[in-house]
Computed example of a mutant assay.
Amino acid sequence: MATFFGRIAFLHALLIFSFSLSGYGFLRGVESLGINYGQVGNNLPPPERVLELLQSFKLTKARIYDTNPQILTAFANSGIELIVTVENEILGEIRDPQQALQWVSTRIKPYFPATRITGIAVGNEVFTGGDMTIMANLLPAMVSIHGALVRLGLDPYIQVSTPSSLAVLSESYPPSAGCFKSELAGIMPQYLQFLANTKAPFWINAYPYFAYNDDPNGISLNYALLNPNSGMIDPYTKLHYDNMLYAQVDAVIFAAARMGFGGLEVSVGDRVAIKR
């Protein structure tokens, strides 16, 4: 499997999880697994071979970082749910409703529903990328893409959001102290309102191991890797966390609630869906 991940160049080798959770985040059972399917590398297997490998591992979800037509064609009638991406570089064009309509009409509609496209990631980690022009284009681009889906009757089937890194938070420990960075105070409420209006999730790219790598003396490796450990208790909510992933997700949930958007769905790698 290590060779497989290396050859396909999965960015961060991030698994996409989908599990069922109780009201307080306790795991009830893993429902499905998927991958982020990166294409940065050489000697990559063709999409048809990638599909075979995914199916052999019983993976049912994937995200790609563009709208590669070869992948969209290869995944047709496979049953695998796919999230595609609008690249950061074209957000300035896509903010125009007509350009967004053309993008959806040519990049999405011809492949749907044979290819199970379930989400469109508009940009990637834009809030923490440092490019103010791209950030200014993000929300208008999301609105235009969603508007195009509505015009084409695809909005009930395809969600629109943008993946963010946990660097959007100024505080994440304990989880109940979670809050967004002050420099995002202008755009974040507008973004959260869009998600609430369209019933789309807040997507985060969470990498617990990276947090451990930055502070190996203060963070247990087992806690970061979801292995058995004593965990931690939030001193304010008294919630017990036996892994960092749940704690990171809850920090985002609390941050959104602080802005008046309690109950917003937060998803990791787009597939860990948790609500408070």
Rank of each mutant, 00 (worst) to 15 (best):
I204F: 11
Y65R: 05
K238V: 02
N88V: 09
P174W: 03
P110S: 10
M259N: 07
I8K: 00
G186T: 14
Q98K: 15
G79S: 10
E52T: 09
M1K: 13
R7P: 02
V266K: 04
G123M: 03
F254H: 15
Q98F: 13
N88W: 04
A2F: 14
T67P: 02
F75R: 02
A255P: 11
P228T: 12
V126D: 02
A121I: 07
E183Q: 14
M132E: 13
K181L: 11
K275Y: 09
P45S: 12
Q193H: 10
L139H: 08
M244I: 06
A224D: 05
V40C: 12
V126C: 00
G178C: 06
I219P: 10
L82S: 02
L27D: 05
A200R: 00
T60H: 04
E31D: 13
F202T: 00
Q190K: 15
I35D: 03
L225C: 13
A206H: 07
A74F: 06
Y37Q: 03
H240L: 15
E93K: 09
F4P: 00
V252P: 00
V249E: 05
G34F: 01
D242N: 12
G218F: 08
T237D: 11
E89G: 11
D214T: 12
G130H: 03
S182P: 00
Q248L: 11
L21S: 13
E48S: 15
D214V: 05
T128E: 04
F254M: 10
P235Q: 14
L264R: 11
P97I: 03
A114Y: 03
V266A: 01
Q99G: 01
E183L: 07
R107M: 08
L59M: 14
A247D: 01
